[in-house]
């Protein structure tokens, strides 16, 4: 007992993987303790959004015409069908911000409590990777939590249909990792003072211009916008889930979605890790 701690011939990957799992275990413990705030944080936005736009408004007199994208869901289904993948995408994205960006900005700028985890026997890139992966787990949980809300709350039936579980799985995993990488990039590049500003400058625009509340194909009459939003990674999250869950609404080609999710994942992981190393090492 105990010899493993100091034995010199431990293969490197055993040391690394144990440290990695230790970090995951710590994060899981903290998450489990904060389960109630976690659920509230994730559920509140979609809950209210769905309640107002897909339940209250359709029940108001003339509500059907007030619903901005009532006629948009091509194969039928109301605004609820448009919102289902969009709100899941927002939940995935926001989990990345809440799980990585906010705590990191705090830890780097003020408390420095990341230090002990940075000092564990693991390359710094792997410590950053753990952040992304753990954030992705939260994103998957968030998406799973939002699905029943977005499916059952709207007053008009939501037309959800999964043709390929593989595609759905790939989109959810890629989108969740991408959200973690986005969180890492933001968390390592802003000062804690500016984190409030991030909501206005980054989160709001990428959400509202992220094909969350409307399908990308419906932008066809505003061509410049349809092209412009392509730089927004949230677009591919929403469109990916749309293609996987509510294909009747109309969506981007699947191949493009997967390729762009992968592209942004690589780009933001690289940027986030560079930022992480820069903040950790001097």
């Amino acid at each position: 007992m105990g010899e493993v701690v100091g034995r010199g011939d431990d293969v490197r990957w055993v040391i690394y993987s144990r440290a990695f799992l230790g970090l995951m275990e710590r994060d899981l413990r903290v998450l489990r303790r904060e389960m109630v705030p976690f659920v509230i944080r994730i559920a509140m936005n979609p809950l209210l959004f769905l309640f107002v736009f897909s339940y209250v408004m359709p029940h108001m007199s003339g509500g059907a015409t007030m619903s901005p994208v009532a006629g948009m869901a091509g194969g039928g289904g109301g605004f609820g069908t448009v919102l289902l993948p969009g709100l899941m995408a927002v939940a995935i994205m926001f989990s990345g911000i809440a799980a990585v960006a906010l705590p990191l900005a705090q830890e780097f700028g003020i408390t420095r409590e990341i230090d002990d985890r940075v000092m564990c026997p693991l390359p710094i890139a792997a410590v950053a990777m753990e952040k992304i992966i753990f954030s992705a787990i939260q994103s998957v949980l968030a998406a799973a939590l939002v699905f029943p809300l977005a499916y059952y709350i709207p007053s008009t039936p939501v037309l959800a249909h999964v043709t390929s579980w593989w595609f759905l799985g790939a989109v959810v995993v890629l989108a969740s990792l991408l959200a973690g990488a986005l969180g890492l990039t933001i968390g390592t590049s802003v000062q804690p003072k500016q984190i409030g500003l991030i909501f206005g400058v980054v989160i709001m625009p990428i959400t509202f211009l992220g094909c969350v509340y409307y399908p990308w194909t419906a932008l066809t009459h505003i061509r410049w916008l349809q092209i412009g939003v392509l730089v927004n990674p949230i677009v591919y999250m929403s469109e990916g889930l749309r293609a996987a869950l509510t294909p009747t609404t109309g969506h981007m080609p699947e191949v493009m979605i997967l390729a762009m999710l992968t592209f942004f994942l690589v780009l933001l992981t690289w940027a986030g890790m560079r930022g992480f190393a820069r903040r950790v090492l001097s």
Binding site: M1, G2, V4, V5, D10, V14, I15, R18, A19, L21, G22, L23, E25, R26, R29, D116, R117, C120, P121, L122
Partner: peptide, 15 residues
């Protein structure tokens, strides 16, 4: 704080 530090350095849960 101590427990997880030990885990980062590869100790078993019991250790």
């Amino acid at each position: 704080n101590i427990h997880f530090h030990c885990r980062y350095f590869g100790m078993s849960n019991a250790e």
